[in-house]
């Protein structure tokens, strides 16, 4: 079986029903998505299949239907995604374990909705548990990212290019 993760294709020999999370972590050494609960209750394992945020801990690898993006595919320490930059600006992370999942959920939200209300944020983010209680900062970072995305799109449109490359989840 082949899967494409962060632009790179991997050939796998694993059970079809192995959850995507364990393929990423233990087979491909992609460690950004985290194991938290194994039952899609905490969101630490969130990745994107296409542009949709999924809980990779319960998603069988055999059912992957599109390219996969993990936190590593979003941005790097020297070239962070616009949402990651907002996270750093607000100094969101504490223990940091849930944050890859939080960021992937936030990017999926902002991809569909560039001006989310508090209730949109509640709906999109309440599947992601944070035991350090960073929620107030996550909310603030999402709002900052939303403003920045709109501003960058505006700037890009003025100079005639697309901002899609940056906000693409």
């Amino acid at each position: 079986m082949d899967i494409k993760v962060n632009g790179k294709t991997h050939n796998l020999v694993v059970d079809n029903d192995m959850p995507l999370l364990w393929v990423l972590r233990d087979e491909l050494n992609i460690k950004g998505p985290k194991y938290g609960c194994g039952i899609a209750m905490c969101g630490a394992c969130t990745v994107h299949i296409g542009k949709i945020a999924v809980r990779s801990c319960t998603f069988p690898v055999g059912q992957v239907y599109d390219d996969i993006t993990t936190i590593e595919g979003l941005g790097t320490p020297s070239a962070m995604h616009i949402v990651q930059r907002a996270w750093v600006e607000h100094q969101v992370a504490q223990c940091g374990y849930c944050q890859p999942g939080q960021i992937m959920s936030a990017v999926a939200l902002l991809t569909k909705n560039t001006s989310p209300t508090d209730s949109d944020i509640d709906n999109a983010m309440s599947g992601n548990l944070c035991r350090c209680g960073t929620y107030p900062k996550i909310r603030a970072a999402i709002k900052t990212a939303a403003i920045n995305i709109i501003q960058e799109k505006h700037t890009m449109s003025l100079i005639g290019t697309s901002a899609e490359g940056d906000s693409n989840g």
Binding site: L74, W87, Q91, I103
Partner: peptide, 8 residues
């Protein structure tokens, strides 16, 4: 912070 926001 940066490492924790980039999965690294």
């Amino acid at each position: 912070m940066v490492a924790k926001c980039t999965g690294t």
